[in-house]
Amino acid sequence: MASLKTRIGSLELENPVMTASGTFGYGTEYADFMDISRLGAIIVKGTTLHRREGNPYPRMAETPQGMLNAVGLQNKGVDYFVDHIYPETQKIGCPIIVNVSGSCIDDYVETAGIINTLDGIPAIELNISCPNVRQGGMAFGVNPESAAQVVSAVRKAYDRTLIVKLSPNVTDITQIAKAVEGAGADSVSLINTMLGMAINAETRRPVLSTITGGMSGPAVKPVALRMVWQVAKAVSIPVIGLGGICCATDAIEFLLAGASAIEIGTANFIDPSVSEKVIDGINEYLDRHGFESVQDIVGGLITD
């Protein structure tokens, strides 16, 4: 049996398979379907400084081989997480990573600072796709300056592994990746959802309450794979790949493109035990090809 161990900053993972924020609840929702302690890590729902109600219903539309969501970061706030959810997550038995969101730099910093006090949370994933309310609602992650600003501010308040999750809704994602690396990120994860839209022709209305929403699922995989490949060449920190991963083969493609670990999102809705199957499938692939460690295939794409 090959070694599946992988490293993200100072965080060592038993295997490279994590579950993506917003698609796996707080982990326990899936405990009836698989052994969630086997996961490399669970990345929990986007957490903000204050409670957020999120967007009105309808928040979801199925599209060909994908879906749009407009959940709008509904969560009960970081204090509720610390008091009520954090203790439960510590019983799961795999690393728990908190996805942090905000609408201004101060909110990000304060939220990260509170999570910094939790010894059982070894890393945060900073979601910089959120709109910056002080700058006309433009997302932090769409230009290198604002992305670097929020990351360097959080870096000062947060001592453990800092993963920055990149938005694909940009012209050149490598520019953003380099900017956040320079600002002190230990790792980048990509991609977040792609901006999309669905219309009901019969009613002549948008399907989502917010008109536009974030697209995910198999349909985004080729874009995600391309971006992971580009970013892995551009930065020297570990890259975490995600976007449409539904099976072990998809995951291996991301590892070959340069990802040190992967996340599974929308596929959890289709098959609630998929991530366990992906762990086993990667293992089987490594054995079949005679690799001793998953590290042997990270960035192993043959291009000549």
Partner: peptide, 12 residues
């Protein structure tokens, strides 16, 4: 619904 088990918050 997307997940049906309380994980995605799509069905509120």
């Amino acid at each position: 619904m997307a997940c049906g088990i309380g994980a995605c918050l799509c069905c509120v």
